[in-house]
Amino acid sequence: MAGDLTDQEWARLEPLLPSTAPQRGGRWRDHRQVINGILWRTENGAKWHQVPDRYGPWKTCYHRFAQWEQDGTWAQVEQRLQAQADAAGELDWRARADSTVVRVHADGAGARNRGSAHSNRGQPKGSAAPAADRPPNCIC
């Protein structure tokens, strides 16, 4: 299926995953099928219950994803794949970012949260700008 792991990707990933040998609760569903379901869900931004039946029960996909996140399996797999790719010269560790890529949130750029366009910064809460009938430099 489109978007599923290729045979080449699976060949790199499979040896890094936990064994599918029978466990206390029985045999695990095929890792490749479940991982393809997890990938489908993350690529589509769908809810877990929307994972297509071809990937097995959505609860299986969710529980495998959550369990491996909690026990560190995903982190280990990522580290091993990264180390393999780095050793093969497949990674470029030089990264660049500029203002066309990284945007500052409006609050971080000095934008006001609410109110008028005129700033009351530096004035205590509840104080107002000088009244129109007073001279601009009057300390009244």
Rank of each mutant, 00 (worst) to 15 (best):
E78Q: 13
W58M: 14
A97E: 00
N36I: 06
G72W: 00
D86I: 05
R114M: 10
Q33R: 14
G37A: 10
E69Q: 15
E90T: 01
P57R: 15
A97L: 02
R27L: 14
G56M: 15
I38A: 05
W93P: 01
C61M: 04
R114D: 13
R54A: 11
R27H: 15
R32N: 01
V102M: 13
R96P: 00
T20F: 00
Q76Y: 00
P57Y: 14
P22E: 07
A109S: 12
K59E: 12
R112G: 12
R94S: 09
Y62P: 07
P22A: 07
K59P: 01
R54Q: 13
R114P: 01
Q23Y: 02
W48I: 05
T100E: 05
R94A: 08
A87Q: 13
A85M: 05
P57N: 15
W74N: 06
S19I: 04
A46K: 09
A83D: 11
A11S: 11
D92C: 14
P52F: 02
A111M: 12
W28L: 15
A87S: 11
Q23I: 01
D98A: 00
E90C: 01
G72L: 01
G37V: 08
N113F: 13
Y55R: 09
P22D: 04
L39V: 08
P52D: 03
S99C: 04
R12N: 08
R112Q: 14
I35S: 06
R112H: 11
T100A: 02
N44K: 14
P15M: 10
L39W: 05
Q82K: 09
Q50I: 05
Q50V: 05
L91F: 02
Q8W: 03
H31N: 14
R27K: 15
G89F: 02
G45E: 15
V104L: 11
D92A: 14
G72Q: 01
Q76F: 00
N113K: 13
K59Y: 04
W74P: 05
A88V: 00
A21D: 05
R94E: 07
P15H: 11
Y55V: 08
R64A: 11
D98T: 01
A109G: 10
D71Q: 10
Q84A: 10
A97D: 00
P18K: 06
A66L: 03
Q70L: 01
G45H: 15
T42G: 02
W40I: 09
V51I: 14
D92Q: 15
G26Y: 12
D30S: 12
Y55Q: 10
R64E: 05
H31I: 10
R27W: 12
L13D: 04
N36W: 07
L91T: 06
R112I: 04
H31F: 12
A11V: 01
L16I: 11
Q82A: 12
Q70Y: 00
D71W: 06
L17G: 08
R96A: 06
T73Q: 11
R24H: 13
L39P: 03
A88L: 02
A85S: 06
R103G: 13
H49I: 11
H49Q: 14
A85N: 03
T73I: 11
W48F: 09
S99Q: 09
Q82T: 14
